[in-house]
Design a binder for these strands. Structure first.
Lengths: 202, 202
DNA sequence: GTCTATAAATAGATAGAC
DNA sequence: GTCTATCTATTTATAGAC
């Protein structure tokens, strides 16, 4: 559906069409498969057209990353609310939300915090990243048992776990088990909860 | 050191020099930065030379992946032995070994189990992958508390965690903390132990 | 086994017309 | 704002000489 809808856009919307198509492209081939030329091809415009809206490839990617960060933060907030009142479950829900988001949109921490985009000092992206980090830190702080790890390290652990599950999913490591995206998200959530609980002082 | 040593190799060793240089290249730019042309450049041979030893890029990568899998399995065995007798600590040590290995060699599960290499049906690679999986399953089985998750899912969790830590490390997410590779490996190990312990039936 | 030369893709990016 | 045309760089891969 989206492909045609994008191609049949009316004039003046190339910029947002580029962003939308970028997510499609990322979902299909990851950062490695991302190219401005391919984007132009899919939108039936010349390869020069995107450069009227973005200085170069990195600026386009940064805009995508900023949008991804905002959407991911929102998705995590929703998952947290749906998770109930247990602070550990609420924090762990972010891992599941992350897996689901990457599977649906193709952009995760690798895009949002890409080293190749840091030189841009893109304000919107930096701010969106900070908001995401802040949400996670807050949830970690509440889930953190006394005497346990610092909240920052707890965030690091859960991010690593979530990103790992998303990578395994994307890379097809889990494909033999024929899991749905929701299955993988549930596993990531369960693992995150175990991780936080296991960190408690015996 | 290695660069010059490789460039000054005597004749008849291009094949192994290609493998060695591949690891260097992967460590610097990951799978995305891997190219046969760049490899040839570094070894001061023509871009055609590598194709006398490998049918194409994927066959070269598969040979790299098979070697990586064997080395990683050995590194994990060493780490397990050094970890003592507690089954959870022994299993968790594989996460630290993985992080250290990826940091040193640049090739991890993403290369070893790359979807793009599966069509080759490379026997050596498949066998090396099986051996790695088998080691992890065995350790998981011994670390697994009764009533806990299946060993396969435990392996999945620890692999995801380890791969996530390695990605965070490689991507520079942890760079603000100025951690050494050993620091990151220690954190991954600790997190893996917490994960396994937290999975126990309360 | 290695080289030179070359072909065919593909990507990023710009100039200038409309 | 978009197009056509073009440039430059890079990569994978092959043919044929030595």
């Amino acid at each position: 559906m989206t492909g045609d809808a994008i191609r049949r856009r009316s004039r003046g919307t190339l910029r947002s069409a580029l962003l939308a198509a970028s997510f499609e492209l990322l979902r299909e081939g990851g950062l490695a498969g991302f190219s401005v030329a391919e984007l132009a091809r899919r939108l039936d415009v010349s390869t020069a057209a995107p450069y009227r809206h973005f200085r170069d490839r990195d600026e386009l990617l940064a805009a995508v990353a900023a949008q991804a960060a905002a959407e991911l933060t929102a998705a995590m907030r929703d998952a947290v609310e749906a998770a109930g009142s247990d602070p550990v479950d609420r924090f762990a829900a972010t891992a599941g939300a992350y897996v689901r988001f990457v599977s649906a949109r193709g952009a995760g921490f690798d895009v949002i915090f890409a080293a190749e985009l840091r030189h841009l000092r893109n304000g919107a992206l930096a701010e969106a990243g900070r908001e995401l980090t802040s949400l996670l830190l807050d949830l970690a702080q509440r889930a953190r048992p006394a005497e346990s790890l610092e909240a920052l390290q707890l965030v690091e652990q859960v991010i690593a776990l979530a990103h790992g599950y998303a990578s395994l999913d994307t890379g097809g490591f889990l494909s033999s088990a024929r899991l749905t995206d929701d299955d993988v998200a549930a596993r990531a959530t369960r693992a995150a909860a175990a991780l936080v609980r296991g960190g408690q002082p015996a």
